[in-house]
């Protein structure tokens, strides 16, 4: 096992994430219950999407206090690779591993579409050269409206911490932000679902390049090709 996929009560993209990482990318991955310890052999962590603890209080507000979160904070502080997708992104923000917060979409509607995205040159892995200038990835959320105070926002922009921006803003997110990383470049969060865009029968497959970019530091093999349908 190299990749731990944290499973909270109410997570619902945990199996999809495990499938994408384990079966499609070929990196050994396992779902880890939120009351467990993070396995010592963990090389990367995915905090998957869903509705952890029913989104009660706020999205991610209760998951943030789950027992595994202290291990996750230590793992991240030591430079471990962490990716939060959708509710996982909300949890990482609540936990203070990423700045800002995700509010109700400004349209009030739950948005579920294949969303065009613009790629930012954030670092070597998350760059236009590596991912291409634009992507299409599924989004499915009611609270994806990223907000941060002005000083946090200007730091994010000045440090190149924005990974992806919406092309046609679906939720009111400030500066069209769809995904960010921390300053040291080991904690990543995004509202789009790369794990839902990895199979030839998926409407889009851009999740492969995004996941490959994230897992590059732990991946021994070359980038993964689509399996024939």
């Amino acid at each position: 096992m190299k990749v731990a996929i944290i499973q909270f009560p109410g997570s619902n993209c945990d199996w999809d994430a495990e499938h994408a990482v384990n079966d499609v990318l070929g990196i050994p991955a396992k779902r880890i219950w939120h009351k467990s310890r993070l396995p010592t052999e963990t090389e990367a962590v995915v905090v998957p999407g869903g509705f952890s603890f029913g989104d009660y209080l706020r999205c991610g507000a209760i998951a943030r206090f789950s027992p595994i979160m202290s291990d996750l904070k230590e793992f991240a502080a030591k430079g471990g690779q962490v990716l939060g997708i959708c509710n996982g992104f909300q949890i990482l923000c609540e936990a203070g591993l990423l700045p800002g917060a995700l509010l109700r979409n400004d349209c009030i509607e739950f948005r579920c579409v294949n969303q065009p995205l613009r790629v930012e040159d954030s670092n070597e892995r998350f760059s236009r050269e590596n991912l291409g200038p634009t992507l299409s990835l599924p989004i499915a959320h009611g609270e994806g409206n990223f907000r941060a105070d002005d000083s946090v926002l200007s730091d994010l922009e000045a440090n190149g911490q924005v990974l992806l921006r919406y092309d046609g803003n679906p939720n009111g997110s400030v500066n069209d932000i769809a995904g960010i990383r921390n300053p040291s470049g080991n904690v990543y969060g995004m509202m789009p679902h790369p794990e839902r865009a990895v199979e030839s029968h998926h409407p889009v497959q851009d999740g492969l390049s995004v996941l490959n970019a994230f897992f590059e530091p732990i991946q021994k093999t070359q980038s993964v090709e689509l399996s024939p349908s």
Partner: peptide, 13 residues
Amino acid sequence: SPKTTVLDPQGAA
């Protein structure tokens, strides 16, 4: 309550 500086889509609706 949502901070006064923060947009409140629910309140607006």
